[in-house]
């Protein structure tokens, strides 16, 4: 390597190559952005309530216990497909009621079980959160997760 590659050649390859790969990556990101808003997610269904639900999700830092689409803290169940797990695709009313009741029932006070705090969400926040989870469940995730367990 000492003869075939000089320091300035290595430097030029680094700058040129990095710029090339950055531009390629930026272009693919732009395409992915377009694909997400037009193909893989339900842009029309992204209602005010879904947006508010995302805020509820963030304000209570749900991500630091749960994961969503596989990203998060792995301390509590995956929620990207919780709508499917509660049977929301068959019976939306029952799933909504079930998820809300579950959140309200926390903490369960079962000895030895991981504790989810009660975040004192009101009816509107709970509905918005469920709308957000339902909307997330509809994202085309290339078939992930492999099983409904998340």
């Amino acid at each position: 390597m000492s003869e075939v590659l000089t320091r300035s050649a290595a430097r030029n390859i680094f700058y040129g190559g990095s710029l090339f790969f950055f531009l390629l990556f930026a272009a693919l990101t732009a395409h992915t952005h377009w694909y997400m808003v037009t193909v893989s997610t339900d842009s029309e269904g992204l209602t005010e309530s879904v947006k508010r639900g995302k805020h509820v999700w963030e304000e209570n830092s749900c991500i630091n216990c749960h994961s969503i689409l596989g990203e998060g803290a792995y301390f509590a169940p995956e929620l990207g497909n919780v709508w499917t797990r509660y049977g929301g695709r068959e019976n939306a009313e029952a799933a909504r009621a079930g998820i809300k009741a579950w959140i309200r029932a926390q903490p369960l006070n079962i000895p030895g079980r991981r504790v989810m705090p009660n975040f004192n969400l009101d009816e509107e926040e709970l509905d918005a959160l469920v709308d957000f989870l339902k909307w997330t469940d509809s994202i085309d995730t290339q078939g992930w997760p492999p099983t409904p367990a998340g």
Partner: peptide, 19 residues
């Protein structure tokens, strides 16, 4: 950087990005 920039996409497999 040659590997890591496009390598970012290993986080894009299952979040609604193209195949």
């Amino acid at each position: 950087l040659f590997s890591g920039l496009l390598g970012t996409g290993h986080h894009y497999y299952w979040i609604g990005a193209p195949g």
